[in-house]
Amino acid sequence: MAITKNRSMMITATNKVEIAIVREQDVVPLRNRVKDYGVKAGMSILNQTKLITATSELVRNLLKYGGGGKVLVEEVNNGRDKGVRATFIDNGPGIADIDLAMKDGYSTGKSLGLGLPGTKRLVNEFDIKTEMGVGTTVTIIKWKNG
């Protein structure tokens, strides 16, 4: 099952890096890497902050619920705007009810349940695919002027 927030258009991606996430400490270098990509795309401080915060939320889910995984970071260009795409891939148990997981205030853990819906508000494009027993992949894009 999948939920997508996206304006479909041709996107070219370059400079892909893959970052393995196995422990909490891996979050800090990932945030820095994503920030570097945001700076390179010419993002304002505000858009950089939104992108890094979204990254931080998603990588926590990946560690907490997915048991770790990897994050792909790329520069993207849709012909009108530059941006950063981050893809969070885990091989965890998957999300049983994705509609519920996207609701504000819902959490199976002891968190506030702001992670997924809050993250979606911070980025321009948000796509989540999950399959029980296989894993979850979340893809976000923040455009420079988005």
Partner: peptide
């Protein structure tokens, strides 16, 4: 608190 952090917090829902 930096302004960008404040804006982001509110959009996040916190």
């Amino acid at each position: 608190m930096q302004p960008a952090v404040a804006i982001t917090l509110v959009e996040l829902g916190l």
